[in-house]
Amino acid sequence: MHGEELIHIYLHKPNDIGIIKGCQKKEPASQNALFKKYAPVLYATCYRYLANEADAKDVLQDSFIRIFKYFKNFNPEKGTLKNWMLRICINESLKMLNTKKSFIVFEKLPSEPCEQALSLDNLMMEDLIQIISSLPTPYRTVLNLNLVEGFSHQEIANQLRIEAFNSRKILSRAKKMLIKKYKLVNTETWV
């Protein structure tokens, strides 16, 4: 996965060690500290997948219940705390998408294409997340898993129970849709 350097920073903080030990003992204060520290990041991740505030909150809540319940299974030697929690959130988000069984063929996009071309380099993070959220569910899911989380197409295929070539195809279509709709520039290597 990408961004491991940044993730490791959290593990090296002495605060985290105390939180981990406290959570392993199921101390409410440590659980609260863990929640306050990581909830905004995890919420943003859930939102990227679900594109819906209510669903993202539901999934975040379920994820934290699961995190507290199975905290004894977390092994700090195998990976970072944030990584482990992110994985739980992503799994819960995918589970929610699967539960809803949304098979929206085409989702509504803004009626007119953007007039001005957008550059990926200059985009604000909020805008980028909104752009990703505007994609249909399968496109958004594959784009998130591949581009942001860094899963290979085979891994995505295993998770979503589809063929690897379908994952590639969906990603390609997602990119095309974004480029066409938002006139994204500086995306030469996308297509």
Binding site: P40, Y43, A44, Y47, V148, T189
Partner: peptide, 21 residues
């Protein structure tokens, strides 16, 4: 653009983006 089509800095920013609620 390197790193699988997204700039590394932008990717980190995206991964660590925090949303208030």
């Amino acid at each position: 653009m390197g790193l699988n089509n997204l700039d590394k800095g932008k990717l980190n920013e995206l991964q660590n983006f925090q949303m208030d609620f």
